[in-house]
Simulated assay, not measured.
Amino acid sequence: MVAYGDRDAELVMGEVPVARQRVTLAAVVVAMSLMLSGCVAPTEMPRPTTSSSRTASPTPTPTVAPERVEGGTAGQNRPYVEYVMARLISVSPQMTSLEIADTLVAAGFDRAALQVTDHATRVGSRADSILFSILIDGQCLLGQVADGAVTTSVGDVLGTGKCLVGRTVSLD
């Protein structure tokens, strides 16, 4: 009678133990990896070169400031508004609502087309953000000033004929 686990019995029956199959497979994988790694051509590391002549660094191309598009859409004037507001933020990071309105009017927009939320809360604290809008030819150019940056988008006019919902400041 042949006992299970007897090595000779397993060989006689033509079966290879699972543990031996795993070891053989691992050995084949390692051998193939070693053979394939020898097929890769060695690469040389680039060596720094020294030069006695100096090369001039490229001159930065001046950026052209966007301009207001007279008679243009809200989308066409969006880059200009972002530019104007970014300049305001750089000189007055804690601007008031009226400063935003005055800046946009000075940039060529009609005061009657503007809406701006208050820079202060009802309890007198500084608002986290100030929203503004410009009604341009049936579209709303919407903006938000928060954390020293301006974000803009273009949206539809509300059923009220305005762009912003809620309390806005008087711009008169």
Rank of each mutant, 00 (worst) to 15 (best):
M1H: 12
M1K: 14
Y4G: 13
G5C: 07
D6Q: 10
R7W: 08
G14D: 04
G14T: 07
V16Y: 06
P17T: 14
V18M: 09
Q21H: 08
Q21W: 06
Q21V: 07
R22E: 12
R22G: 05
T24A: 15
L25S: 12
A26P: 01
V30P: 00
M35D: 01
S37Q: 03
G38L: 10
C39T: 15
A41S: 12
P42Y: 02
E44F: 03
R47C: 03
T49L: 08
T49C: 00
T50K: 05
S53H: 02
R54P: 02
T55H: 11
S57Q: 15
P58L: 14
T61A: 14
T61R: 15
P62L: 12
P62H: 03
T63N: 08
T63H: 10
T63D: 13
A65M: 06
P66Q: 12
V69R: 11
Q76A: 15
Y80K: 04
E82Y: 02
V84I: 15
A86K: 13
S90F: 01
P93G: 09
Q94M: 05
E99T: 04
I100K: 12
I100P: 11
I100L: 15
A106E: 15
A106Y: 04
F109M: 05
D110S: 14
V116D: 10
V116M: 10
T117E: 03
T117Q: 04
T121R: 07
R126P: 00
R126M: 00
A127H: 01
A127W: 00
I130K: 03
I136P: 00
I136T: 04
L141S: 09
A149I: 01
A149C: 00
T151N: 10
V154Y: 05
G155E: 13
G155R: 14
L158A: 11
G159P: 12
G161Q: 03
C163E: 08
V165K: 08
T168F: 02
V169A: 06
S170Q: 09
L171D: 00
